[in-house]
Nucleic acid binder design. Structure first.
Length: 287
DNA sequence: ACTAGGTCCTGGTTGC
DNA sequence: TGCAACCAGGACCTAG
């Protein structure tokens, strides 16, 4: 599942390979993968553009094109962007194929078809077309403090774990790194956002930055589908504190890691390092 | 305004 | 062995 570290890793790899390249042709193999404009228009609009830069915002990848246009990609659950020297047949999950002027190809593969691509023409802002992008909150790797984090949840009473998945507050966190950051900050995932102390928010902001930076240095996490643009797996999963480690001993206290269901998502934590405490807990759908 | 839960989608896993 | 049911989850939508 590509979250901020995985998208950042892909972004860095693609920037090195794609800046200066020209799109020779774009082929859409699955129309649902194109969010804007219509698939046929997407192909014709993209053709001929030079790629000037590659950036990341939250979990979105933005390819800056010449003549003021932008190609935006969200990988969703299982999307991958792979650089190929030439396509050896069409893979089952290949959704969009972009041929470049040096005969290399950029393949968008996506098993579960939750990923989307947008072509934003000159004169339009990405935020006009992509609602999710317009609402994105703080970039945790930029200036980002406990105060900022606390301010993002003012007036809310949700449990902290599902709250952290809200991209309108923190851009780029997903299920893996939300669990990891809460462990590192020693905060139980079901504690309400209105019940965290200032010290909690400070520890959490620091923990979010820390787990994201460590994962970027490991090339992200590979749990099932993810690889970088060169097809190489990430390795953060080998160092994860709690995510994907249900019933395994905590790396700090040896207490078995637990998994509950919270707002429809799996949630991993150490019941000893992240104690319930005396503070108010929110009702959860845990089983 | 906020929150929980359903939906999309497919391949892997589990259970009978 | 084979089939059906279930599970994973990011973003969006709807209902309460």
């Amino acid at each position: 599942m590509p979250e901020l570290p995985e998208v950042e890793t892909i972004c860095q790899g693609l920037r090195a390979a794609l800046v200066g390249r020209q799109v020779a042709y774009a082929e859409v193999l699955r129309s649902e993968s194109i969010a804007y404009p219509k698939p046929a228009a997407f192909s014709s609009c993209l053709t001929g553009h030079h790629i000037l830069g590659v950036k990341r915002r939250g979990k979105y990848l933005l390819f800056e094109l010449d003549h003021g246009a932008t190609l935006v990609v969200h990988l969703g659950m299982s999307g991958r962007l792979l650089l190929k020297q030439k396509s050896n047949g069409i893979g089952v999950h290949l959704r969009v194929r972009i041929l470049l002027d040096d005969r290399s190809e950029l393949h968008f593969e996506d098993v579960r078809v939750f990923g989307r691509l947008w072509y934003i023409p000159k004169g339009k802002m990405c935020e006009e077309i992509i609602l999710g992008l317009s609402k994105l909150g703080l970039e945790p790797l930029e200036h980002f403090t406990g105060q900022d984090l606390k301010a993002g949840f003012v007036g809310r009473r949700q449990a902290i774990k599902p709250a952290l998945l809200d991209q309108r507050v923190v851009a780029g966190l997903g299920n893996i790194y939300a669990d990891e950051a809460l462990f590192k900050a020693k905060i139980h995932p079901t504690i309400g956002v209105d019940d965290l102390s200032y010290a909690d928010w400070q520890r959490l902001a620091y923990a979010i930055k820390d787990v994201l930076m460590i994962s970027i240095n490991q090339g992200g996490s590979t749990l099932r589908d993810y690889t970088n643009a060169q097809g190489v797996n990430g390795s953060y999963q080998h160092y994860a504190w709690v995510y994907g480690r249900v019933n395994e001993p905590c790396r700090v206290c040896r207490c078995p890691i637990e998994r509950i269901r919270l707002s429809g998502r799996s949630c991993h934590f150490c019941p000893s390092c992240q104690p319930w405490s005396k503070r108010k807990m929110l009702k959860t759908g845990s089983k």
